[in-house]
Amino acid sequence: MTNKNAVLIIAKKEFSDKLHEPSFLVMMSIFMVTLFVYTLGSSSFSNVARVIGVFFPILAIALGYDGIIKEKNSKSLNVLLTHPLFRDNIITGKFFGISITLGLVVFISLIIIAASDFLISGKIVQFEALSRLMIFGIFTYLYLLTFAVFALFTSTRCKTEIGSLAWGVVIWINMCFVLGPTIIMLSSIITGQSMFEMTDKFFSTGALLFNISPIHHFAEVTVGNLDLSYGTFGIQRDVHGFLDTKYSVSYLIGHYWQNVIILLALPVILLVASYISFLRENI
């Protein structure tokens, strides 16, 4: 048995388990209904992006928080390690299993929502709009994958599933609710100015600090906003993300390349952290 096969078998096993779990259908239903309500009921797509950016990370965390810890606590990990495979095969397999499940949820949901929209509204099907929706799906997937892989990381560090989930929730709350107001406060301390003074110095400092927030990069590439979380400020730019059909995709890639790279790099960095953490784990 090659390592490649071992990874695929573990990924397939993880994917099968996720499909079988009632939480998969629950998550998919929540995802779809929320998107459906916001897509058809909201006048602005930034509201849809906000709901995805703020609330959906918890669904992604739910996919990965028990990835390793469940195997560890049920002692099946010990049995698994008696087979000729390595720890990195296990973590890679888990990663692919979670990634495929998340991809299935995101893209099937988006396709069904888009299809319902066409069916209900009767609007014209345009390839440009469909392609931008798929690009939006890719960035949504990468953004949520960051949280799913972080949950996988906590599952390698924590002793219990509750502990892993709690860490995930703490990070989610901090990233999606606390970080925005914190950055406003930090910007005020650094610049000595209030947000209400509306100075360029304050906003440029805030924009710089927002680079540490995944939701900032998601907000930039999807709707061209500085931030989507509640209790913070958003600066609407001239370019409204990849959904702005006034600009070509190639132009938007050039415009948002830094945000795109960070969204691609974050899951990889967290996966590497999970590797290191799992390899150093005393099982």
Partner: peptide, 25 residues
């Protein structure tokens, strides 16, 4: 667009069913 929407929904459900059938435990 109505036909397109119905088609997309049917395809999505079929794909989902196929995946669950193929990979579901």
């Amino acid at each position: 667009s109505g036909f397109f929407g119905v088609g997309l929904i049917l395809i999505s459900i079929c794909v989902l069913g196929l995946i669950i059938y193929k990979f579901g435990r």
